[in-house]
Structures are given as C-alpha cells and as structure tokens.
Amino acid sequence: MPVHVNDDEAVDTQVLEAFKALSNPVRLRILHWLRDPRAHFPQERAIADPDEVGVCVSHITEKAGLAQSTVSAYMSTLEHAGLVISTRVGKWTHYRRDEDRISRLVEVLGREL
C-alpha cells in the first residue's frame, strides 16, 4: 500500500482504487449481485448466511460463467479496493459487500465531485 503524504492524497488513492475495480463490467455486475445475494444466488446450496458471511466464490463463478481463477482475481481486486470483505468457511471463501466502505466512498464522491 502506498505511503500517503496527506489525507487528501489518501482519499484520492482510495477513490482511484474503487474506480479501477468498478471499471470492469463483470466486477461491477458481481458487486450488484452481492447487494442482494438472496435474489441472485441459490440459497438451497449455501453453506453460510449470505447476508452475514457472504456468497461462496464457487457460486459467483458459476453465475458469472467465468473460470474460478478469473473470478478469484476479480474478487481480490474488489477486496483490495475496499468494496468487499472475504471470509473463509472451511475450504471455501465467501464474499460480501463492505457497505460501510461503499457508503464512505459515495460520501467522498458527493463531496469531492
């Protein structure tokens, strides 16, 4: 993570990371799906509460129709940007939106743009 000279630079870096992550249409779509995981992912196959723990990366992979490695890289980008949180459940990684960070990003955008 880069060293920041001041708070404005730190905010700029966070916003740029989020924009980079959201510039890919599939990552943006995944973030949209995770907003309402019960509507977008099969609940009968879930091994954890999708609202509390998140959605298993295998379910995201299946819905996206992409290779698991690609989806994992996309999720890593979203996590690095602070848009999702990962949680391990056994050997599976689950993802959920970081609503607090997303709200702060929206607040910063409203204030800065």
Rank of each mutant, 00 (worst) to 15 (best):
M1W: 00
P2Q: 06
P2E: 09
V3S: 05
H4W: 01
V5L: 15
D7A: 10
D8Q: 13
D8R: 14
D8H: 10
V11K: 02
D12S: 10
D12N: 09
T13E: 08
Q14S: 12
E17G: 07
E17V: 03
E17K: 14
A18I: 05
F19Y: 09
A21K: 03
L22K: 08
L22Y: 09
L22C: 12
N24D: 15
N24G: 04
P25D: 06
V26P: 05
R27M: 10
R27S: 13
R27G: 06
L28V: 00
L28I: 00
L31E: 11
H32R: 14
W33T: 11
W33M: 10
W33P: 12
L34P: 14
D36G: 04
D36W: 08
D36S: 15
D36I: 10
P37Y: 05
A39G: 14
A39F: 05
F41H: 12
P42H: 08
P42N: 03
Q43P: 10
E44D: 15
R45W: 06
A46V: 13
A46S: 15
I47K: 15
D49C: 04
P50Q: 04
E52I: 08
G54P: 04
V55Y: 02
V55E: 04
V55R: 03
V57G: 03
V57D: 01
S58R: 11
S58V: 05
H59E: 15
I60E: 09
T61R: 14
T61W: 03
K63S: 02
A64D: 08
G65N: 05
A67N: 10
T70G: 02
S72F: 02
A73T: 09
A73P: 03
A73V: 04
Y74N: 11
M75V: 03
S76Q: 09
T77A: 14
H80I: 04
G82P: 06
G82W: 06
L83W: 06
L83M: 08
S86P: 07
S86Q: 08
S86N: 11
V89N: 01
V89E: 01
V89T: 02
V89F: 01
V89K: 02
V89A: 03
G90N: 08
G90P: 10
K91R: 13
K91W: 02
W92N: 10
T93W: 09
H94V: 05
H94F: 08
Y95P: 08
R97N: 03
E99Y: 11
I102M: 13
I102G: 07
L105A: 06
L105N: 06
V106Y: 00
E107V: 00
E107T: 07
V108C: 00
L109H: 01
L109F: 05
L109E: 02
G110K: 12
R111F: 08
R111H: 10
E112S: 09
E112W: 07
E112P: 00
L113S: 12
L113K: 10
